[in-house]
Simulated scan of single mutants.
Amino acid sequence: MLHSPWRADFPALAAFDTEHQIYLDNAATAQKPQAMLDALAAYYHGGVANVHRAGHGPAARATGAFEFSRVKVARWLNAPGPANIVFTPGATSALNLLAYGLEHEFKPGEQIVISALEHHANLLPWQRLAERRGLQLVVLPLLTNGVVDLDAARLLIGPGTRLLAISQLSNVLGVWQPLPELLAMARQHGALTVVDGAQGAVHGRNDVQAIGCDFYALSSHKVYGPDGVGVLYGKTDAWARLRHWQFGGEMVRAADYHTADFHPAPLGFEAGTPPIAGVIGLGASLDYLQSQDPNALNTHEATLHAALLNGLAARPTVRVLGQPQTALATFVVKGVHHADLATLLSEQGVAVRAGQHCAMPLFKHLGVAGAVRVSLAMYNDGADLVRFFDALDQSLAVLT
């Protein structure tokens, strides 16, 4: 049976074991390694202070740790440097920052292009921007396997396209999107490119220079870091095109009663007191991830995912949505409501997600009212899948 050598690094799993609970909702949020918890405790026990605001010892220590995390994030993303990294309250906030900060770039009738599989966080900010500016919101269709239809995309991305916003990995279908082809189409017409990396970043495709996008957003809590923290990477020339959106302390370079001048990125887009402890904790989580063998992680993840898909395929009433490639599977069962199934699984100590997964338009497109999602992390193992399939079979025996 497949064992995870990383389970002992995540203390929450010991608590779950005591509760006879297994956790298979990692696409929503991941458990935290001891290294991250130690970093948070060290910061709080050692004495807190605000950053960038004072010259005393505690402030200098906090600022140094905060900015060192920016360096760590830049290295992890292979960004040119820390000045390309802005911290936000989450990936959703990062995408909203772009939708407001870039608003002046658009003229009525121009196009924003998204795909039919987007999470609400990468749909609604652009939908609202299109309404505010009189823009066309163009939706790229999908093939039956859940991948954006590139032939259709070539027809829909054109001279009027000013921005392409696309998820790297679908949180519902678990399918990697063809970013090289899509981004090349957008660049051909001079459009900005935004990649929602909230699901993809934790699965090894987090090299922003290789991806080649103008902006890349991710959430700390999905990469084993604290919640309430997001990262927005931007190319230097792309940051220069943003106007400041939120205003307050420390983002201002000079202010009078009637005028003000603002810092460029990164500080100019981090108004107010940032999530200091969370950023430091994120740095510790990335240190932990980078200390692991990436080949071992990828092999473990792929083997576990294959076992999940094989087990679902062996149950004839189960239908998996799309053709998932990484870390998750979203499925429906004929004649069974997804909420009922998730409730019975939960009663047996199996934590999964049920519903429309913040992707209502996608579910309408698929003709499905909702679905159950199982999502995996580095600490899951074969025993978790045995528990899941035992609970699934018992639930189906009751519901079908």
Rank of each mutant, 00 (worst) to 15 (best):
120 H>N: 14
274 P>E: 03
364 K>G: 03
3 H>T: 14
219 S>Q: 04
179 L>T: 07
103 E>M: 11
287 D>H: 07
334 K>P: 00
346 S>G: 15
140 L>H: 12
38 D>L: 03
375 S>W: 03
18 T>K: 13
357 H>W: 06
352 V>H: 01
70 R>G: 15
91 A>G: 15
199 Q>W: 01
98 L>Q: 08
306 A>Y: 00
148 V>K: 06
278 G>R: 04
206 N>W: 05
174 G>R: 04
246 Q>A: 15
57 G>L: 12
354 A>V: 00
164 L>V: 06
179 L>D: 02
75 R>F: 08
356 Q>I: 12
105 E>Y: 11
198 A>C: 13
274 P>Q: 00
34 Q>S: 12
236 T>I: 08
159 P>T: 11
175 V>C: 11
65 A>G: 02
42 A>Y: 01
291 S>Y: 01
100 Y>E: 15
214 D>E: 11
21 Q>F: 15
379 Y>D: 05
121 A>F: 07
366 L>V: 05
33 P>V: 10
222 K>R: 15
60 A>C: 07
118 E>L: 13
134 G>W: 09
263 H>D: 06
31 Q>K: 07
57 G>Q: 12
310 N>C: 07
325 Q>N: 04
306 A>P: 02
301 E>Y: 00
270 E>L: 11
201 A>P: 00
274 P>F: 02
27 A>R: 13
3 H>S: 13
45 H>D: 10
94 A>R: 06
343 T>A: 13
64 G>T: 02
141 P>S: 01
161 T>N: 08
91 A>P: 00
19 E>F: 07
7 R>A: 14
255 A>H: 09
332 V>E: 04
85 I>W: 11
257 Y>W: 12
182 L>M: 10
158 G>H: 14
368 V>M: 06
357 H>K: 02
112 I>Q: 04
327 A>G: 05
85 I>G: 02
171 N>A: 14
230 G>F: 10
221 H>C: 11
67 E>M: 11
355 G>A: 08
389 F>I: 09
132 R>A: 15
70 R>K: 14
226 P>Y: 00
2 L>N: 10
187 R>F: 03
342 A>G: 11
335 G>L: 10
337 H>I: 03
284 A>Y: 01
394 Q>V: 09
129 L>M: 15
138 V>K: 09
18 T>E: 15
391 A>Q: 10
181 E>Y: 01
88 T>Q: 09
79 A>K: 09
44 Y>N: 08
6 W>S: 02
260 A>N: 03
227 D>W: 01
1 M>T: 10
1 M>F: 06
176 W>I: 11
121 A>I: 14
353 R>H: 02
33 P>A: 11
213 C>K: 00
69 S>Y: 01
132 R>I: 08
91 A>I: 05
183 L>G: 04
355 G>T: 07
287 D>N: 12
236 T>F: 06
54 A>T: 02
22 I>T: 08
306 A>W: 01
255 A>P: 05
207 D>F: 01
73 V>A: 10
4 S>T: 14
391 A>H: 11
360 M>V: 14
365 H>I: 00
287 D>C: 04
124 L>V: 15
58 P>R: 09
321 L>R: 03
126 W>Q: 05
229 V>N: 06
180 P>F: 05
329 A>V: 04
154 R>P: 08
260 A>L: 12
114 I>D: 06
191 A>N: 07
14 A>D: 13
244 H>L: 14
189 H>N: 10
126 W>L: 12
213 C>G: 03
396 L>D: 01
284 A>F: 00
172 V>M: 07
379 Y>R: 01
